[in-house]
Design a protein around this nucleic acid. Structure first.
Lengths: 107, 107
DNA sequence: TCCCTTTTTCCATAGATTTGGAAATACCGC
DNA sequence: GCGGTATTTCCAAATCTATGGAAAAAGGGA
């Protein structure tokens, strides 16, 4: 039986223990990226195009912000055919910074 | 009897209802500023020089970061003679973004 | 294989941020 | 008023960030 994580991703994500609070806050301190996190807060994954369209930005700009979110460890990106499925890393974030995501997505 | 707030400050602070989450996160997304907030988290006010010395930075740099913290509504600055007494705006932050400060200063 | 779709990479530009020395400002005590 | 102390403002330089068009990459289906 193969490793689940191996099947799930081909894209580099930081390990949970490497998550840095200042980096996370700086990354979320952009209105566009904060909005992406709020959209993802319902737990349903989205593809890049869906998010770019919803935010009314070119896909190249969207790709840039999604890369920062992934590199900060805030989102998880899963390859699905030619698409990328983006979801919140709620498990790791909640374990490492309890209450943070809740405080950010409340209301 | 004069207004307490009037006696307390001569320096512009944003009103509680103007606090913006993205601005707050961007401001805290700097290691130096996050450290200042952690130092202030015990509730005891500090003067600028005390913070600059503790962080090993020139006072002009400290003054810059403290201005950003104040303008974001994260700290309150009170004039005390030639000094400035810096404290966390925990009351307003807790009211506006419940759980945020706790998540940030835990551990 | 060829085409179509989705996303990323490349690249240049515009703009914002951080830094710290030097000068200016402000308040206090004498 | 004067000297001393604390802090801010000014300013320039170095660095980092965001934007978006165009081209490249990568997978799926016929």
């Amino acid at each position: 039986m193969a490793d689940t994580a191996e099947l799930r991703e081909r894209i580099p994500h930081p390990p949970a223990e490497a998550l840095d609070l200042a980096t996370i806050l700086r990354t979320l301190g952009d209105p566009l990226r904060l909005e992406i996190v709020r959209i993802l807060a319902d737990g349903r994954p989205r593809v890049c195009g869906e998010l770019a369209e919803r935010l009314q930005i070119p896909t190249s700009t969207g790709s840039y912000h999604l890369r920062l979110l992934r590199e900060a460890g805030i989102t998880r990106t899963r390859v699905r055919g030619t698409s990328r499925e983006i979801s919140l890393r709620r498990d790791d974030l909640d374990a490492r910074f309890p209450g943070l995501l809740d405080a950010l997505t409340r209301s």
